[in-house]
Structures are given as C-alpha cells and as structure tokens.
Design a protein around this nucleic acid. Sequence first.
DNA 1: TCCGGTCAGGTTGCGGGCAATCTAGGCCAA
DNA 2: TTGGCCTAGATTGCCCGCAACCTGACCGGA
Lengths: 227, 227
Amino acid sequence: MSLLTPIEAPPSLTEQAVAALRRDILSTRLAPGETISEAAAAQRLDMGKAPIRAALARLAEDGLVQAVPRRGWMVSLVTIRDIHEVFDLRLLLEPEAARRAAGRVDTTMLARLDAVCAEGYDCGDAESAMCYLDANKRFHVAIAELSGNNRLARQLDRMLDESTRMLVLGLRRRDRTMEMAHEHHELVERLALGQGEAAAALMHEQVAASREMVLAALTAPDAMTAV
Amino acid sequence: MSLLTPIEAPPSLTEQAVAALRRDILSTRLAPGETISEAAAAQRLDMGKAPIRAALARLAEDGLVQAVPRRGWMVSLVTIRDIHEVFDLRLLLEPEAARRAAGRVDTTMLARLDAVCAEGYDCGDAESAMCYLDANKRFHVAIAELSGNNRLARQLDRMLDESTRMLVLGLRRRDRTMEMAHEHHELVERLALGQGEAAAALMHEQVAASREMVLAALTAPDAMTAV
DNA sequence: TCCGGTCAGGTTGCGGGCAATCTAGGCCAA
DNA sequence: TTGGCCTAGATTGCCCGCAACCTGACCGGA
C-alpha cells in the first residue's frame, strides 16, 4: 500500500513474547533458577500458549532458559563456569571483529555508534542501568556487524544477552556502570581512523575489564550462583 | 525404575522432526530455495503441525531454513558470501579450539575420535558420502568440546551444519572425500601429544582446504547459488 | 495485445483442549 | 518416629480448527 512503509509489520505475538520475556530475564525480574509456566506466562501477557511456547523455545536456543521435561521452563542458572565461557568467547570474537571493522565505518554507522554511546550516559543511576546495558549491547553488536560477517554478529548477539544478564547480576553488588562508559568513544575513534590493532586491543581490554568486574562482584560474597 | 537406563528418553516427535528435516536439508534432498509447507511436512512425517513447527523454528535458528511471512518456510540459499562467512568463522574458532584441546584428550575421548575417523573411511563412494560428512562433523564438534568451552562447541555445532551442506554441494561436482580424510589422524596425534600449536596449524590448514574445495567447485561452472 | 480488478486457493499465526506423566504431599503401617 | 505407597495437582507435548492474509490466476475492458 503505502510506499513509505517498506517494513511496517505489526510485531507478532511471538515477537512480543520474546521481547517481554527476554527483558524480564535480563533484568533478573525473573531470577535464575525460577520456573516459568506456559499457562502463567500466557495469562500474564494476555495471549495463548502458542506464542509463549515459541518464544521460550527461542530463548532456550539463546541459553537464557532451559526446558525441564515435565517441570516447565527454568531460567538458566549462572555459574562461575558460565561466566568464564561467555567472556572467553567474547575475548576470542570481539577483538577480531573490531580489527575487521576498523576502516569500514561509514559516517552513517559512525553517527549511530556515537548516538548509542551518548544514550548510555543519559540514564540515571538506579535500575535504569538496564538502559545503559542495552545500549552497550547494541554498541558491541554494531561493531560486529561492521566486521562484514553477519554470522559473527548473530552469534555475538546471542551471547551478549547472556553477558548482559551477568553484568546485571554483577552491577547489583557494585555499580560501576560509569567506569565502563568512557572507553566507547576512544574505540569509535580508532575504528574511524582505521587503526585495527589499536581497536582490537581496546576491545580486548574492555571485555576483560567487564569480566573482572563480574567475577569480582560474584565470587567475593555469598553466591547467587548455583550448579 | 531401571537403574540401567539413566537416559532412555523416547525421542519426542519434535526431535524426530528436527532430525529428519535436517538430514533432508543437509543432503540437499530438500534443495536450497525449496519451500516447505508445514502441512505437507506433517503429512510426510506422519505427525501434527506442532512438532513440525517447533522443528522448523529450531532449524531457522541454525540458519538452515528461514520463515517467509505467509509463504511458508524456505530452505536457505547458499551464496558465495555465505560460504566465506561460515569458513571465516570456522577459521577463527576451530584452530583456537584445537589449541586448547591439546593435552586434554583422555583415552576415552581419544578412542572416540579414532572411532569417528575410522567410521569415515568405511563408507563407500556414492551418496554415502553423507555418512563421512556426518562423522567429520562429529569429529570437529568433539574437538571443540575438548576445548572446555561448551558454548564454543555449541556455536560450532550449529555452524558445522551449514558447513556440511556446503560441502555436500561442493562434493556433488567433484568428489574429494578421500583427500580430506587422512588429515584427521595426524591431528588426533598432535592433540594427544599436547602439541597445541601444531594442532591449531593443522586445523587451520584443514578448514582452509575445505573452503578452497567448496569455492573451487561452486565458482567455476554454473552456479547453484542465488542471491 | 495489454492492463487492472477480482476471486479462489493455500499458508501461517494463534487459540483451546486432551492425554500422558512427573512431582509433591499426605496417609498408613511398622 | 520413620519409611514407603498412593492419590491429587500441575505441566508439558501434541492435535485440531479457525481466521487473517498473501499470492497467483482468471477475466473483462480498453
């Protein structure tokens, strides 16, 4: 119909369910270990079981929930081992993505990256840290997309959801959001200048710092973690 | 009940559907670009639409099919770009996996790897090449699992399905199955000896060789590829 | 011949219901 | 008190039906 609406698909109920459940899980409103009943979720989101089911299946692929045969669905636990696995993989993929993205940034994408950075700062302090973390994720995904390998970006996208949840768990104990933000601008600068090695090094440093923050926050006191 | 059946779950219909559809797609019995109707697949596999639907959703996550809004499901096309993306990512992940797996092989796993290698040789020539390619995939996944990072293994597992399909498309034109097989034993040897660098180098060489084979087979003549 | 409109067929998206089955808790016997 | 059994509840896995919607073909007119 309208030529001005090239893609104006009203998001399907499944998409809505995915978004809602992912948001609740990442924000730990649905805590690790908690069980989710299809019927309950369907009632809460005011839809049938079918979209809920599809949504949970997709989240299971991302590792955020897991199906327990006849017990329902459980929000995945976060173990120290999980943290190591996620950040090890990030350390393997993201510096390489940054290296390849260097010099490929066009002005459009550059503006987008900068906007994402700025967006991060705006948020206040308390629970709107979720806002920053979401922008942070989009920032990293955008760099991965710039690497030119869409599959790399996709795999990272999934893993960054897990990573975000870990950061949320970590930030609960010590809020260090602001310490992390100022690295983004320098990274964007290096990318724009085409300095691949420097960008990769910065990316490595940043991801490693995140890992240390999460580990420091979660290993010291009592553990929200479980087997 | 029985202590001898720790995990004797009769595979659910969904699992069966996933296995059957994946097999058909990897073997190109369902050709790239072909559309799959839920109803038709349900009738063919003698089950309802629900398991088919779940199975297709999972295969879509793996990139083997993609949902077209009201047209059904389409077996993903294979473009030259796809090939580059998959093998570039394999080249990034697999040598590192081999490096980390070195020295971690216990005798049990070693036997398993050897068995997988042998299995590859047994198959004849014609269409049972699928058998070899399946063993090849399990071989690579096993090494990734030995790296100690389960997420690395999972991500590789998904990508190797795509890779396998590309190899099938390539082998259709020139059968080079046998040329690739004898590299496995040396790789296992290096892994058992804990020579990480050598194992990584061998892995890199092997994956690169696969890529060249696929590209050589698919770029020269007419293209089964599409945009 | 060519073009625009209309209609029928086919497909998914989703809702609702049923049976199989697993778990938890109470109850009875020792 | 303690151990085992048994019932009741809850939950998924699956099937079936319906409406919305898109696609392609057919047909009438210019």
